[in-house]
Design a protein around this nucleic acid. Structure first.
Lengths: 226, 226
DNA sequence: ATTAAAATAATTGTATACAATTATACAATT
DNA sequence: AATTGTATAATTGTATACAATTATTTTAAT
């Protein structure tokens, strides 16, 4: 097994896409920053060909925008956009919760209960990263229960955009305890197979997180020029 | 001005994307059909590089899907997907109509009235293509009034997918006259600045077009195997 | 004849070279 | 000194060559 022979083939096409998107989400590439293909290629360790394919996708998703002169720039973040994103999420995830309530098996309720317990634990132990991913787990599980594939695709896309803002709020204690209560309430509605209740509870949950996000963003946004 | 010198530069990057998407929407490339890069490149008259960038975007939008072995195939069309698409559209366009009712100026009402008159005329004169594009105009105008940019982006994307099905229903007379009445009703609600009424009217309008679409698709879908 | 292995062909993935465009710096003219 | 024109550099757009993978055919052995 001569490992030095079979190196190439690093699947860079998709990896480049995810790596680049992550750098934008994490603000490693800052909003409105102008970027150049050659620099990015060097940064990511690939040639321009797979990089450009990744760029195409990110342009399409509006993480990157092309200026009139063809130069590339990281998309802006605006309060208007985050409002719309959370509003759409409230509608779609609300309907997902409603469908989940309709489809829920007893096993589902058990699993969801365990998840919420995990969220509580990671919050108490202060592991905020776990907290965030457990929160995703809860929402993702409901998505699977709903079996609404197109809803989920759009939501995943919106979540990636929302994540650009979430770094501002995810570590905010008050919001976390509130989210915990809200998750509990959603689960209760689903356990009761109360479809309308679950829908409303999820909508309120998302809109409540929007309010928290806006509070935090308000100050930051004030410091920026156009 | 030696025109034979400055030919190249055909902006093929974006053109290829739109041309390829259109061929999928128009079923020139049929659902589930396996396609090869080289054939597509020849078909569209470009090299593989810009073609592959177009493919990336269409993969991301799930007009094209990649099989486990790396081969490319046109995405399937399923009844489940069309149901979800129209349901999401009803939610988003409903909210757009609500916002439009809130923002409407008297000039807007005038313009919308004129549009509906155009739709009626093109329907009476049997120009179905005009009918479809006028219908888009009406919805697009409401979108602009709402000023909800993220909503609109997602809706445009969904519309492209919906268009793959719409060919089945757009020429259906009954549905058209019904849509006409519904457009009128939506406009009336907006003219009255009745936000909730406009939202509900638009939701009903979209879901009504879903019902028509499903009726027409049902038979076709029955003839297909898996 | 059937199956398995190997060779060949077809297809996708990546890198690089070159063409076309846009930006920048510098000189010339007013 | 300011402005315009020109040359140079930087950047994006496209094509092609080659590498790696997957599919297909051929060949050989049982």
């Amino acid at each position: 097994m001569d490992s030095s022979v079979m190196r190439t083939r690093r699947l860079s096409k998709d990896n480049t896409y995810f790596a680049l998107k992550q750098k934008i989400i994490d603000s490693e590439l800052k909003p409105d920053q102008v970027v150049h293909e050659e620099n990015l290629a060097a940064l990511l360790g690939v040639s321009r060909t797979p990089l450009r394919e990744a760029i195409q996708r990110l342009e399409n998703e509006e993480f990157l925008v092309r200026q009139p002169n063809g130069r590339l720039r990281v998309a802006s973040v605006t309060v208007e956009e985050v409002k719309e994103i959370f509003l759409i999420r409230s509608m779609l995830e609300g309907y997902i919760a409603k469908s989940a309530a309709k489809n829920a098996t007893d096993q589902d309720i058990q699993n969801l209960t365990a998840m919420i317990e995990n969220i509580k634990q990671s919050f108490r132990s202060g592991k905020s990263q776990d907290f965030v991913s457990y929160g995703f787990e809860f929402h993702d599980y409901l998505s699977e229960m709903s079996d609404l594939k197109t809803f989920v695709k759009i939501l995943n896309h919106l979540r990636d955009h929302a994540l650009r803002y979430c770094r501002f709020v995810s570590l905010h204690g008050d919001w976390n305890t509130q989210a915990d209560e809200e998750h509990n309430f959603i689960l209760q509605m689903i356990a009761d197979r109360n479809e309308e209740g679950a829908e409303k509870a999820m909508q309120d949950h998302i809109l409540s997180s929007l309010s928290s996000a806006l509070e935090r963003i308000q100050g930051i946004q004030a410091n920026r020029e156009d």
